[in-house]
Design a protein around this nucleic acid. Structure first.
Length: 865
RNA sequence: GCCCCUGUGGCGGAAUUGGUAGACGCGACGGAUUCAAAAUCCGUUUCCGCAAGGAGUGUCAGUUCGAGUCUGACCAGGGGCACCA
């Protein structure tokens, strides 16, 4: 018997699919009545090579794409490249290769790798975000956003590296120093571009509830990130008329607990609050405090460890409910300028931070919320604030109300006296999209001394990146380029300066799924007709690491594009179904010199891991997500050379549930190889002259009928598992059926027909998982055409039901025996049969049968005592 | 600190509605084949026990005729958010 050779079979079938354009999506103009289905995996950054870890994402999407095709859908399953980004610039610095050249070479390699996997992709729709044909439309979109007030410019605090002369992202600042230069990072105010995502904060929050095919976890994370909280804005009149004239009549604060207003003991302003800044100018103590706070590091750890500090500003405000009650105003380091109004009122009994602050500076602490079932005399605040709900007391007209009622009443009273109103605050900030980088989409505006910021007219797009740039200096090459930034104002024609910032690469990935719907569109980013036909994406597959930013930005973008009139996507949600897959993990290896080693550089010798090159022992480290940095990767090409693409696909879908991590092990791979060969030998064991795989072996009985039943049951189970994204269960079901089929040696024509039918079902069932082997089997079995075009088989309901059923018999909940009965046997008959069983008689001897529960066709439970 | 998720054999995991816990795969062990090995094939494999039997889904309680599944408290691991007022 011949062995299956993926090296020959896989390229052969891939050419066969390509020859008939098997995976080309139809679309709104196609002459088809098929319903559409858009399946998409998060497109990759072309970082170099694909490893087995990456392939899991694509394998899952491919199962869905092929399954839906077999189910009669017009499937759109495209692929492209998230091709702008910092690694290309780093490569340019380290190796002197142009970012574009490096990127396109990586794309070439990775495309070939993906094609070897045999994915059912419509390659005619391939896009790369660094292609001017793509980013010119992104620039057009930017101008639309600008026109509609959704893109704007403002000064913002950034991390500035004075040595590298560049802006650093928060994660590039380590212990207050630049990650590359090691220079102390300073906070600097720079003009930056923002997208007004906060305008959609409510919509983005409210719509989360409708995303019923998204993981709960992701929805929670999005909701937390937006961080909507309802409360009130409260205005505190400045006591000193002179100050009131200078700073406006009141200081406004945001609070979620207006019910605790009578517990107020101070106001605290952020160190960079305008009032604090102004007062600092003629008060050295305040000035020093502000200076200290500005210098404080921005890392989480530092913020966490920093003790509460403050300075008395020497001014007072009047309580909104009592003009005679004056409250001191402080500045405090724990108040954030970017949240709410940058000012709070301290109610120490009900907030731990306020309490810590009050204790440190000896400010009054008055409890105003009484915990349920507590005597006021027993409720004493020491070092722990009571932050929960309860009954309000010590609070005049709020006394006796519950927290929720008191909040409403307090807001109503604030509105009555004109010193406040109900308000909502968000954690979400506007999206800073400026990057001082070369390898990104240029922001298509020009700065003119007379006209200000002027958008580049559409007919002059794209604003292309210059090719001749140098990376010998860390700062932005666009800024340093001798000529690029000099241009004429599109409005008045006078010499002007181009914007040298490029867009955050998250912008590119916020609309690529729309571009896939009409990748050839030259005049528009996408044709609304195509976008409206294909959108939303029916099934999106990607890593959990994008649970917040990418998905939130995309959800913002589709809404913004709707509002700019570029399309009409009802509801505005881009991804109807989302699945977040787990990673592929692998052991890590470290040489005796402490360098990470590739799995191919180590070997097991006499039970010990050694480095092949040196023979020295190797430290086996933790099992971690496959990553280039830890070198615990298995290259996809090497894997496919050894075992074939099908084996890779089958492996990453086996064992672990798709949402969880799966560990790569050599023995697991060998198990897959065994399975592939076993499947092949099972298919080839069918004698010559057997009927084709689409035939139905009707009217057979005995073992032949049992085989048919097994196949149809497996089909039912696998169909269910695919629909429910439980690919590991589908794999187990397939294993089971193969085990049954390979042991079945038919002795007559009926048996052969039954086995042929069963194999036909099996082969169509595995086609979404291991499509090349499925084609090879289909051909061997004499199937019509290609299995890629075969319809998904239908399970015969008559074969899914059994005539008899095995019922376990429990005594006090413990299984003691089982009986085989006709399906639907009457309860009385089952009961007496059960009581007559040997095991039952033995176990009930000397005891009284108190009750017998018969659940028809399921179980019998006898209660004795 | 707050929020969420997960705890099942030696390992990954299955059990879709409260109804036979451990499917399927890996590993291990025994056997066949082989001069030998690889590969392949056939068995066994939750634990204790020779057996009869008993115990068993992180721990403790509860609901139920019956709990991996439902409820409460706790323990452990993972993730998210974090001076967000």
């Amino acid at each position: 018997m011949s062995r299956y050779n993926p090296r020959e079979a896989e390229p052969k079938w891939q050419s066969a699919w390509a020859a008939r354009d098997a995976f080309k999506a139809g679309g709104p103009d196609a002459e088809t009545s098929k319903p559409k289905y858009y399946v998409l995996e998060m497109f990759p950054y072309p970082s170099g090579r694909i490893h087995v870890g990456h392939s899991r994402n694509y394998a899952m999407g491919d199962v869905v794409a092929r399954y839906k095709r077999a189910r009669g859908f017009d499937v759109l399953h495209p692929m492209g490249w998230d091709a702008f980004g910092l690694p290309a610039e780093n490569a340019a610095r380290e190796r002197g290769v142009h970012p574009g050249e490096w990127t396109y070479e990586n794309i070439r390699v990775m495309r070939a790798q993906l094609q070897r996997l045999g994915l059912a992709l419509d390659w005619s729709r391939e896009i790369a975000t660094c292609d001017p044909a793509y980013y010119r439309h992104q620039q057009a979109i930017f101008l639309k956003l600008l026109e509609n007030g959704l893109a704007y410019r403002k000064t913002a605090k950034v991390n500035w590296d004075p040595v590298d002369q560049t802006v650093l992202a928060n994660e590039q600042v380590i212990d207050g120093r630049g990650w590359r230069s090691g220079a102390l990072v300073v906070q600097r105010e720079l003009d930056q571009w923002f997208f007004k995502i906060t305008a959609y904060a409510d919509q983005l929050t409210d719509a989360i509830g409708d995303l019923d095919r998204w993981p709960e976890k992701v929805r929670t994370m999005q909701s937390n990130w937006i961080g909507r909280s309802r409360g009130a804005e409260v205005s505190w009149p400045l006591a000193d008329p002179e100050l009131a004239a200078r700073f406006g009549d009141t200081i406004d604060v945001f609070t979620t607990r207006p019910d605790t207003l009578f517990g107020a003991s101070f106001l605290a302003l952020a160190p960079d609050h305008p009032i604090v800044k102004a007062l600092a100018e003629d008060d050295p103590e305040i000035e020093r405090f502000c200076h200290d706070c500005a210098r404080m590091g921005s890392t989480q750890e530092e913020i966490e460890k920093a003790p509460k500090r403050g300075v008395d500003l020497g001014i007072t405000v009047k309580h909104p409910f009592d003009p005679d009650w004056e409250i001191p105003v402080w500045s405090a380091n724990f108040v954030l300028s970017g949240y709410g109004t940058g000012a709070i009122f301290g109610s120490p009994a009900g907030d731990q931070r306020d309490l810590d602050f009050a204790r440190k500076y000896d400010l009054p602490v008055k409890p105003v919320v009484l915990p349920p079932n507590t005597d006021p005399a027993d409720h004493v605040i020491e070092d722990e604030a009571y932050t929960d709900h309860g009954t309000i007391y010590n609070s005049r007209f709020l006394d006796g109300l519950g927290t929720a009622d008191a909040i409403e009443r307090a807001i109503a009273e604030l509105e009555k006296v004109g010193l406040g109103k109900g308000a909502t605050s968000y954690r979400l900030r506007d999206w800073l999209v400026s990057r001082q980088r070369y390898w990104g989409c240029p922001i298509p505006v020009v700065h003119c001394e007379d006209c200000g910021v002027v958008g580049v007219p559409e007919d002059q797009l794209p604003v292309k990146l210059p090719e001749d740039v140098t990376f010998d200096h860390p700062s932005n090459p666009l800024e340093r380029h001798p000529t690029w930034k000099h241009t004429d104002c599109p409005k008045c024609g006078k010499p002007a300066r181009r914007e040298t910032d490029t867009l955050d690469t998250f912008v590119c990935s916020s609309w690529y799924f729309l571009r896939f719907t009409s990748p050839g569109s030259e005049t528009e980013p996408f044709a609304p007709k195509d976008a409206e036909h294909w959108m939303p994406v029916d099934q999106y597959v990607g890593g959990i690491e994008h649970a917040i930013l990418h998905l939130l930005y995309a959800r913002f973008f589709t809404r913004a594009l709707n509002d700019c009139g570029l399309m009409n996507l009802p509801g505005g949600e881009p991804f109807a179904g989302l699945f977040t897959q787990g990673m592929v993990t692998h052991e890590t290896y470290k040489s005796s010199e402490g360098k990470w080693l590739l799995p191919t550089e180590v070997d097991r010798k006499d039970g010990q891991m050694v480095e092949i090159a040196t023979g020295k022992p190797v430290t086996v480290g933790a099992i971690e997500k496959m990553s280039k940095s830890k070198k615990n990767v298995v290259d996809l090409d090497a894997f496919v050379d050894d075992y074939g693409a099908d084996a890779a696909r089958w492996f990453v879908l086996s064992d672990s549930p798709p949402e969880r991590d799966v560990e790569y092990t050599d023995s697991g791979v060998e198990g897959v190889w065994r399975f592939v060969q076993r499947l092949w030998s099972t298919v080839t064991s069918l004698p010559d002259g057997a009927p084709g795989p689409s035939q139905v072996a009707d009217g057979v009985s005995g073992p032949a009928q049992d085989i048919r039943k097994a196949a149809h049951k497996a089909l039912h189970a696998v169909t269910d598992a695919i629909e429910g994204f439980r690919f590991n269960s589908a794999v187990a079901q397939v294993h089971d059926l193969v085990n049954v089929l390979r042991k079945y040696e038919p002795v007559d024509a009926d048996g052969i027909a039954a086995k042929a039918e069963a194999l036909g079902i099996l082969v169509r069932m595995i086609a979404p998982f291991i499509p090349h082997l499925a084609e090879e089997c289909w051909e061997t079995l004499g199937g019509e055409g290609l299995v890629v075009d075969a319809a998904w088989p239908e399970a015969d309901p008559a074969l899914l039901v059994e005539n008899t059923v095995t019922m376990p018999i429990q005594i006090n909940g413990k299984r003691r025996a089982e009986i085989e009965v006709e399906k639907g046997s009457p309860e009385e008959a089952v009961k007496s049969l059960a009581l007559a069983q040997d095991g039952v008689v033995r176990a009930t001897e000397g005891l009284t049968v108190r009750k017998v529960i018969v659940v028809p066709d399921r179980i019998v439970n006898i209660v004795v005592g």
